[in-house]
């Protein structure tokens, strides 16, 4: 239902052209939950802005249900990384969630129903009359999520939504997203730099290369639908998938190494990773060292945090 075809974006400034995204093609089916993961600075945010219609691509197209996206489509919602800046500080939590519904001209009872339902769903039923800045970071992001689901979108885009919250909160929010996705049957595109998060959340992980960006790999996550922070993360299959994605990202960062699974959409890519798992570990360690030398900011990105 969401088609990204040959997407390319270059920025021009001060007589210099910067190619942020080179050539991206992928497709999301109805009701799918896909994670986009890639090294820092690989143009994930640019991509998301193009998909959401906030930015015009230089070339290529984005289509939702076959209709080209030229501006933000009415049945799409976006959750931004900067929760503190995407909520209106002068509105209450309720006001924030209700605002887009007012613009949709929904009748008042229906608005109330949707707002109550959304706040309840993210566990903030009690906080409606507070202002966003009275809440913790994780709770603010819940408000932004409630606003998105109250909007009843068919597609939900999330731009590194949990990058700025602590690990504990993050785990809760990840489970919340999976729960909401199952309950409201939306198509979700979740952008992250955290490999564990991508594998844990997604049905599918699209791995991007370093800038200028192309699709490095498309991994199908064959973990059971019911996921759990404890058991899922300790499952061997999770570790395999994680290692595979990790290796791809290291390859992507080093520029060379050719995309090992390009075109091998579906389980094929993932199974391949399982097969050469032993050799892969050493590979990954070597790459890790390089990542560290590259710049300290990249190391935590690659290792993905929490263990």
């Amino acid at each position: 239902m969401l088609d990204v075809d040959g997407l390319r974006k270059t920025y021009s400034g001060r007589g210099r052209e910067v190619e942020a995204v080179r050539d991206l093609t992928f497709r999301l089916g109805e009701g799918e939950l896909a994670c986009l993961v890639g090294p820092s600075g690989c143009g994930k945010t640019t991509l998301l802005k193009c998909v959401s219609g906030l930015m015009r691509p230089t070339a290529g197209s984005v289509a939702l249900d076959g209709r080209p996206v030229t501006g933000p489509p009415p049945d799409m919602a976006v959750v931004f990384q900067e929760y503190g800046r995407s909520l209106f500080p002068w509105l209450t939590v309720r006001g924030n969630v209700e605002l887009p519904l007012k613009e949709k001209r929904l009748p008042k009872p229906r608005r109330r129903e949707l707002v109550d339902g959304a706040l309840e769903a993210v566990g903030l039923g009690h906080a409606g009359s507070q202002h966003p800045w009275e809440l913790s970071g994780g709770m603010q992001q819940r408000v932004a999520i409630a606003r998105a689901i109250a909007y009843e979108p068919r597609v939900l885009l999330m731009d590194e939504p949990f990058a700025a919250v602590d690990a504990q909160t993050r785990a809760d929010l990840e489970d919340l997203i999976r729960g909401l996705w199952q309950r409201f049957s939306m198509t979700v595109l979740f952008v992250t730099h955290d490999i564990d998060e991508a594998v844990y959340l997604g049905q599918r992980v699209i791995v991007l290369s370093a800038s200028p960006t192309v699709v490095q790999d498309d991994v199908s996550v064959d973990l059971p639908d019911e996921r759990d922070q404890l058991t899922t993360r300790s499952a061997p299959r999770f570790a395999e998938l994680r290692a595979h994605v990790y290796r791809e990202i290291q390859n992507a960062k080093n520029g060379g190494g050719g995309p090992s699974g390009t075109g091998a959409t579906g389980t094929g890519g993932a199974e391949g990773s399982g097969a050469d798992g032993g050799g892969g570990a050493g590979d990954a360690e070597g790459a890790d060292g390089e990542g560290g030398a590259d710049g300290p900011d990249r190391a935590p990105t690659a290792t993905g945090g929490r263990r």
């Binding site: 906030l54 501006g71 919602a77 976006v78 931004f80 800046r85 209106f88 613009e103 606003r147």
Partner: peptide, 15 residues
């Protein structure tokens, strides 16, 4: 970011 939020949720004009 707030301006983008308004665009995404179709908030324009007087509102």
């Amino acid at each position: 970011v707030l301006a983008d939020t308004c665009r995404v949720y179709g908030i324009r004009g007087r509102r």
